[in-house]
């Protein structure tokens, strides 16, 4: 599907009224994308327990089409749930690069946003956005499962506004801000 999408703008461009077709295609593709945001099963610290609670009985993330996948190769979303230590930074970049595009990141909790209570520690990365681009920041220490719901709904809003005319997905545009850490 990705290959077809890359060619699609060119086809639309030569057709009269192509943008109309494009808008309809955008709406359809975005709708299907946002309804099945599959996160990679990946927890770091305290927030991971709240993430598990969100998957479990009371909150039931499946209702939003959020179904955890054990492999990054099958996932669209990475939930950075917890403190990112410096030792973990390189594996996170590696996992992120293994995910297929378009890929999204929710930075869950204060630690992933900015270091949180460990902001002055020698071993903690001050915000996961130093190594990978982040779509939604979620405050709280830890955020409640309801807050995680809100973050996913916000991400869905963002996905709904994506345009295939701007590239194959959201990723090329997002990754402009990313920073290469260089060889470890």
């Amino acid at each position: 599907m990705g290959v077809a999408l890359e060619k699609f703008p060119a086809i639309c461009g030569v057709l009269p009224g192509g943008s109309g077709i494009l808008t309809t295609a955008d709406a359809f593709i975005n709708w299907s994308r946002k309804s099945s945001v599959w996160p990679v099963t990946f927890g770091l610290a305290c927030c991971a327990i709240e993430m598990m609670a969100a998957y479990a009985s009371r909150f039931d993330f499946d209702r939003l089409g959020v179904i955890p996948r054990p492999s990054p190769r099958q996932a669209d979303l990475m939930l950075i749930a917890g403190t990112v230590s410096k030792k973990m930074a390189d594996p996170i970049v590696q996992i992120y690069r293994q995910m297929p595009e378009p890929r999204f990141v929710i930075s869950m909790g204060s630690c992933a946003n900015c270091g949180g209570p460990f902001h002055d520690s020698y071993a903690v990365l001050k915000g996961v956005d130093k190594i990978i681009p982040v779509d939604v920041y979620l405050a709280g220490c830890p955020p409640r499962p309801e807050a995680l719901y809100y973050a996913v709904l916000k991400l869905q809003e963002k996905i709904q506004q994506m345009k295939i005319g701007h590239g194959a997905g959201a990723a090329p545009q997002q990754e402009r801000g990313s920073r290469d850490l260089g060889a470890p």
């Binding site: 410096k86 930074a89 020698y122 071993a123 990365l125 001050k126 130093k130 850490l181 260089g182």
Partner: peptide
């Protein structure tokens, strides 16, 4: 990591993650 962090005179050297 340079040094041993729980020593009282440990001084943190900026690494590639702090920038």
């Amino acid at each position: 990591l340079q040094g041993h962090p729980l020593r009282k005179d440990y001084a943190h050297a900026e690494d590639r993650f702090d920038r």
